[in-house]
Amino acid sequence: MHPALSVIIFTSVTGAGYGLLGLMCALAAFGILPGNRLFGLAGFVLSFGAIATGLIASTFHLGHPGRAWRALSQWRSSWLSREAVLSILTFGPSLWLAKGWILDGADPAAAPWRWYGLATAALSLLTVISTAMIYASLKPVPRWRHPLVMPAYLLLGLATGGLWLNVLLHGFGLAIDDLAGAVTVALLLAWLVKIAYWYSIDRAPGRYTAEHATGLWSQGSVRQLEAPHVQDNYLLREMGYQIARRHAGRLRRLALLAGLGGPIVLTIAAALLPRWGAFALSVPAAGLAIAGVLVERWLFFAEAKHVVTLFYGAERA
């Protein structure tokens, strides 16, 4: 699949945004986070900013961004629509909570604010899940319709969100001892899932072949002799992207380095440093993690094979 920058940014940045939003609101609801107004302001600005950036990026993928609102209508069948609806629904309780937290100085752990917080957290999770399901529901892309796709999206969203939360906490000198540990674990878990995913897709060369696509089993092995048109068409531009294995391997290592290795080292180091030192390390940790996820997302597209390519000479998908 063609790795479109808009979609990559959309999934990784909104993922982190919702991770941050969800975590922040949930932790606040349980009173684990301090109800500091400025902290709240920074948290909401950062998470809403990330979400908005991602959503706006996603509209670059649209032929008619102006009509994007129409995407809200088909929530009963379409994961993309659900994602859109959920992302908007999330704004309800979260904005309300933000108002209370920042403007009213309310305690997010107190009722009714804690319910808004919990609702925001749940909706954030669901939004990330539906983002993942947009891909994970597509049968024609076997590498997406994979049981580890959704967990990876969710965990990476939470982990990257968690890293940003960590940044904020360090910034405000409000560090919670266990958070860094939890985020590190989440990060580790997320990338383990991802590694397992890679391992799995590498072992499965692709279930489908040109014989499947054409149904010409009985005639023997099937090869394309001539494509319908000499130049690549929309389908091939969109789905015909191919990446060399060697290249993918290098990028995976890069993703792991940026998304996992770097952030973990920096996060642990940050935990050992005083406030501003910790802050100074936590920012690159979170930034690197996002970079790692961007690379991972790029690979998520580039390594995915659409069965339609089987009609065009691909051996397996």
């Binding site: 993928h61 032929g63 961004p65 009509r67 129409r70 597509l138 969109e238």
Partner: peptide, 13 residues
């Protein structure tokens, strides 16, 4: 009504 999200083309094998 179409917003050009291309998802349908991804969904079609």
């Amino acid at each position: 009504l179409c917003i050009g999200c291309k998802l349908c083309s991804w969904a079609c094998p």
